[in-house]
Design a protein around this nucleic acid. Sequence first.
RNA 1: CGAGGCGUAGCGCAGCCUGGUAGCGCAUUUGGUUUGGGACCAAAGGGUCGCAGGUUCGAAUCCUGUCGCCUCGACCA
Length: 507
Amino acid sequence: MLRSASLCAAPTRLATMHPMTDKKAQQYGVTPQSVDFNDWYNEVVKKADLADNSPVAGAMVVKPYGSALWERIVRWLDDEFKAADHESLIFPTLIPMDFIMREADHVEGFAPELFTVNKIGTEVLAEPYVLRPTSETIIGHMWSGWLNSYRDLPFLHYQWGSVFRAELRTKAFLRTSEFYWHEGHTAHATQQEAQAEVRMILDLYHRFCRDILALPVVRGEKTASERFAGAVSTFSIEGMMRDGKALQSGTSHYLGQKFSRAFNVKFQTAAQAEEFAHTTSWAISSRIIGALIMTHGDDKGLMMPPNIAPTQVVIIPIGRKDNFGEMVAEGDKLAAELKAQGVRVKVDRRDGVTNGFKYNDWELKGVPVRIELGPRDLESGVLVVKNRTGDDKETLPRAEVVGGIKARLDGIQAELLQRATDFMLENTVTVDSYDEFKAAIESGKWVRAFHCGDPESEKAIKDDTKATARNVPLDDAEFFAEKEEGVCVHTGKPAAYGKRVIFGRQY
RNA sequence: CGAGGCGUAGCGCAGCCUGGUAGCGCAUUUGGUUUGGGACCAAAGGGUCGCAGGUUCGAAUCCUGUCGCCUCGACCA
């Protein structure tokens, strides 16, 4: 619950500049981003009705609006996976604990955050289970039984579900002890094929973020110290939030033969040799909703990109008691015309709530387009239209609004992507000295710098600045891909990777 | 997990220090007036004071434990 804690945590700040000291502000709206980004985020999640806290530590309840959003995310991705010939399947939530223990790096990464089931009724289990933190192990186990010949490959599998990781500090959508995702798991006969899969998925994620969520993201490879526990190589898409922090928004891992060796996933080749499969895993989680909130949101609340918005257009019938019903009926007619074009539209038929209240309500929820429809408009054949992205209302002929609705939505989609891209570029600086590096990080920016690749140096930088290497952009990444040689900004040694690394503070 | 803060009506809070009838604003319900950017008047309903122990004649208030939330730190595929 959003109790007094967040408002009282820092009394000195509160006393001087917290707008919640104002009665009206306390009741309506959210804390401005510039005052306290954390408060802003927590309040938006609550007030826009995306999620609520549950009695279970760190586990949220996703409310209908949040669920509608997640369902749209799931649907789009699921269609794409299937279009790329992947098949879904369903694995148990419980995994034998010893499975997790079989791959050394995997254990080390996950052991501290495992929920363990060691009792059924009153009977203590000799071999406990864990609630899956991810399913490479149990899937590897099953694959070993399914795989005989190279002709069986590739396995192109994925499942939708939730996983459990007991993080010590949680935050709705960004880091919850149970979260929702798909996990892709594929097995291939060759390294090349597996690596092509990893890359194909990373690109799919990139398209999803760019075209559907209007999130500019940087495709790149993680440095060794930031790899998935058990991966040979990890690739990520990184987005910049409006506070300048980075959010890893999706990952795609090449696991080599590490898991196939641990779970005996092997096959006979055409040359009659025995070989271990090359496997991959990849995921986008409910965390992506956090990215959506923090990339596009403003002081009025959420801003939903039209391509993902559960509701794209809201119609507000405006009338008095005697003609409100008539206006609602007109709104329904208009809605039907928009729906016929495939637009997701709602008519706000609530009576006894003032128009101003409705405007603010839908702005908080981030609905891209609002149409007002009142007696005056009806009389003159116009509609009042307002985009969530701007401040101005437009009065336009009804036919123009109806006919131009798709273009309007596309325009908003493009505007959001452009805005977020500009923000990311404006808040990324290229530096060649460690002093500049520290100053830039301190001011909440991303840094592009040369690095020697030494994990010890990365650790030292993190201890010093709280910034980590986000990724090394791919050669064909949309941003920051330039090839360059230089010396490490931290150690002065020759730079690794042949290009600059993105550093930033992260969620 | 370490340090700090906070749990009182749906939301935001006061009351706690100094133990003695549980309050305020908003929201809700009803009636009326309103309605093109967060309406107004009137009346009404709503609370095991997070939970469990303890001290006391008596606990929202004092003590202990515990659960949950927030911030900083550590951790974070």
